[in-house]
């Protein structure tokens, strides 16, 4: 069975210079798609990526990352909409580079598709009632 998940990797400074993603491909036969990366030698690095592969390989890959000292979060936890604050104006729609926002036909309510979000954070400050929130 194939799994595909979007995850956020936090690299502690001591392993930022190690070829960790290479090992995921080579040793665990996993496909990766980097959505966002911020890696500076000597500092903590953050990598947001989609990881795809067989369930067994995926689990072993995640175990390898954890053993190396990488902290892992599910991406879906990162940008969330505060439903009570969203006024459904739609200011976010044309700003999102991955089209994660759309209008529900008929009601014109703004829909937020988590799966499309790459945590670029553009919507967070551009949302007039500041309904989009970033969670670490």
């Amino acid at each position: 069975m194939t799994v595909s998940k979007r995850i956020v990797l936090h690299f502690p400074p001591r392993i930022v210079d190690q070829p960790i993603v290479y090992r995921l491909v080579k040793d665990f036969d996993l496909q990766f798609n980097i959505l966002k990366a911020s890696v500076t030698p000597g500092r903590e690095g953050i990598l947001v990526m989609e990881l795809t592969g067989g369930q067994r390989n995926y689990d072993q890959g995640i175990k390898y990352l954890t053993d190396t000292g990488v902290k892992i979060q599910a991406l879906s936890q990162d940008v969330v909409r505060n439903e009570a604050r969203c006024t459904h104006c739609g200011a976010c729609i044309t700003l999102c580079p991955t089209n994660a926002f759309s209008l529900e036909p008929g009601t014109r309510r703004v829909l937020f598709d988590h799966a499309k979000c790459v945590v670029c954070e553009l919507c967070i400050k551009a949302c007039p009632p500041r309904a989009m929130e970033l969670y670490f």
């Binding site: 006024t87 459904h88 104006c89 739609g90 200011a91 729609i93 044309t94 009601t107 014109r108």
Partner: peptide, 23 residues
């Protein structure tokens, strides 16, 4: 405007609203 895009100077421009129609 509510169709999602308008034409300006021959270019298809995506539209967004600041006023909430559902509200």
């Amino acid at each position: 405007l509510k169709s999602g895009s308008i034409k300006v100077q021959g270019k298809e421009v995506p539209t967004a609203s600041l006023s909430s129609y559902p509200k």
